[in-house]
Simulated assay, not measured.
Amino acid sequence: MAEDAFTEHRPLLFTIAYEMLGSAADAEDVLQESYLRWSAVDPATVEHPRAYLVRLVTRQGLNHMRAVRARREEYVGPWLPEPIRTVPEVSEDAILAESVSMAMLLVLETLNPTERAVFVLHDVFGYTHGEIAASIGKAEATVRQIAHRARRHVHARRRRFEPDSDATRQIVQRFLLAASTGRIQDLMDLLAPDVVQISDGGGKVVAARRPITGRDEVARFVLGVIRTTGSTTRVEPATYNGMPAARFLTGDALDWLVAFEIHDGRITGLYGMRNPDKLRRADAVRPLDRGGL
């Protein structure tokens, strides 16, 4: 049955769509559009359902990427990918964990839609240039050139990445303890000198309108946020985008979500999500898959 094939490959299809779009909501829209097209196809005419579905999702993802670019350009304040809750086991696949990390998704935003699709399909999911050419309707030689250009662009901008682990979660716990007790020196000891903090409020809630850089500035910003959240805020550890994270809740409402980027025992990036539209689906655990690679 068509539904059975789609359900079987859904984690893979969602992962591809999410990495192409950086938005769980947009990825779900792409999957819905793809399913409607798939349901109109006679399964008996499809020799390899997974390959067919990947091509379908890729084409729908490309169409969607081109449609949302103008919306991203008009975004108020810094834009961050919509965070997705992941199981700790995602970190066991280093390529998958890095590919859904906040830093990598921000780098992918700097590619044009075709470059992004080619990079994701080739470097993350391992599809050949010929398979990608069939998916996006371009010559194999052209896809090879696009892949080379996209890879060079990404490698020049990618940040050092360490996936979620017991060690990184302990650093986050120490950081949160220092922040809650106002120990600024302890905070600064856990931050890399070139640490960057990015907040996404989407113009809907209060959030920093520019990235904050440097150990001193980030430490003071964090203490300021902790002071304004009040004693009623509850903090929960979690894993998002293959990274250690913290959820800040008032009652049952999720007010803040912060994902931590860590390298060599220091926090190099903090990605704070406050946009309520992007927090709406933040409780759902998303199964991710690279197709058995």
Rank of each mutant, 00 (worst) to 15 (best):
I146G: 00
R234S: 13
P237T: 11
A208S: 06
E140A: 11
D189N: 10
H129I: 11
T268L: 01
R274V: 08
V172N: 02
P43S: 09
A27Q: 09
S23R: 07
G203R: 06
P113H: 04
A192F: 00
A5R: 12
A134F: 15
I16Q: 02
G224Y: 00
R183N: 10
F14I: 11
T250K: 12
I136W: 01
G77K: 03
I146S: 01
A259W: 00
S39E: 11
G202P: 06
R158C: 04
I16V: 10
L96C: 04
R220N: 09
F260H: 00
R149K: 12
A94G: 13
W79V: 05
S91E: 03
V172L: 06
P244I: 00
E98N: 13
M20V: 06
A219P: 00
A133Y: 04
Q185W: 12
A150K: 00
E217N: 07
S23N: 10
P81I: 04
V195C: 00
T110N: 15
E109M: 06
P113W: 08
E92S: 15
L279T: 03
E92M: 14
E3Y: 14
V235G: 07
R71G: 12
V30K: 01
D277G: 11
D26Q: 14
V54E: 03
A24T: 13
H153G: 07
R220H: 11
V57T: 07
M20E: 06
V120K: 05
L191M: 12
G230A: 00
V100K: 00
G269D: 07
N63F: 08
T86R: 00
Y52K: 10
V30Q: 03
Q197G: 12
E115L: 07
P244S: 01
I95Q: 07
T181L: 02
L293E: 14
R160G: 13
L108I: 02
E261P: 02
L13I: 04
E98W: 08
Y271L: 11
R169V: 04
R59I: 05
D166F: 12
Y240H: 04
M20H: 11
T128N: 07
Y18L: 06
L56P: 03
V285Y: 10
R144F: 09
D283E: 11
A24G: 08
